[in-house]
Design a protein around this nucleic acid. Sequence first.
DNA 1: ACTCTTTGTGAACCATGGTTCATTCTACGT
DNA 2: ACGTAGAATGAACCATGGTTCACAAAGAGT
Lengths: 215, 215
Amino acid sequence: MAYRRTDSVSARLADNRRAILNAARDLVAEGGFAAAQMTEVARKAGVATGTLYRYFPSKEELCRQVFREVSAREMNVLAGIAAGEGPAIDRLHEVLRTFATRAVRGRRLAYALLAEPVDVGLAEERARFRRMHGEIFAGILEDGVTTGAFPPLNVKIAAACIAGAIPTALIGPLAPESHELEEKGDSLVEEIVRFCLAGVEGAGARKTTEQRASA
Amino acid sequence: MAYRRTDSVSARLADNRRAILNAARDLVAEGGFAAAQMTEVARKAGVATGTLYRYFPSKEELCRQVFREVSAREMNVLAGIAAGEGPAIDRLHEVLRTFATRAVRGRRLAYALLAEPVDVGLAEERARFRRMHGEIFAGILEDGVTTGAFPPLNVKIAAACIAGAIPTALIGPLAPESHELEEKGDSLVEEIVRFCLAGVEGAGARKTTEQRASA
DNA sequence: ACTCTTTGTGAACCATGGTTCATTCTACGT
DNA sequence: ACGTAGAATGAACCATGGTTCACAAAGAGT
């Protein structure tokens, strides 16, 4: 028996791992995933390039991990609201407003999570992120439909629409070089949320001119 | 005077250019922009790799050109509908349905245009594409608001929401490996369109529980 | 003190795929 | 026919940036 992992070593390993993840996260928060190059991450974390590979099998894994950690924080905030008490409509309102507002506040990070051009690995992670948004929204919608607060609707599709509408409406303004959020951010958020709520609530069957004419 | 460009030569040049663009377009339609590698494009177009650079300064330019040509066709279809006669609401309905339906029919191409992970150059082109969608939608909305068919609303934001909701709701199903569109495509489209129309029409001020309570 | 194992190092390595360029070919004008 | 300009060629080139690996350092056990 020649070697055993001490607590102090385990701690140091854990510290390193954290330092690496933090370094990567910070780089992403500053310049998006494009800025998270292995050399830079290592430098910022205070370790050698090769060391990164003792903790993560590849850049892709490292970036995925960062993506998951950052997005998990957001998801938890939203999930918390979704799981709360109160009428579905209020929770929906709150979730949407929070989603949009947090994106506006943390623009660069939001841009990285939602819109920055990334490679296929991260795109996959991003898809998962969107899907989870959809599921949170869908949960509330389900509630609302059950209690009769919302008209009958296909909750999955409506949720997907919301999960797409919000980021897209924000993306132009979210782009790193845009500054229009500083002032008009709040009203923008309000308007987006309003659209989504209306999409949910006004789900009753509706007719085109032809249908009205033939009635 | 030693040389003058003949008609036959000009024609051949134009043919080559077209052949290259077509080759690239076909590759994109089959395997997305990821499949449009210069070597492949050249092979498919029946020219040498170097020749590509006599017609396009870089791969990025070539791909942008392809993107523009393909997307222009879509935009024109939508713009045609938007510019038509009839009540705004019908035109909106028609435009949205057409947008979604065409995406469903030309899945792979739609995926490439809307969702495939691409590099920054094409992402820029894609952003322009989205913006143009938004402008088409916004034009109709503007009309509808003016004529009183729609309640007052921020047309730009609503348009952006629509431009985001439709692709996002389709993306999962659009993904090359998914086959769920074959059967459920039409109802999916209907539901998405319904959500968007409701978002536009139900734009009247709406109140949260707190606001209702304090009234 | 000595050995053995794990951990850390960073310069060299390599894979990918776009781009170049010396050379060859084509066709225009005389 | 022949000289020349423009067009075509495609194998070699190169830039980027992730990954490796031979070696050194540190820590654990006897």
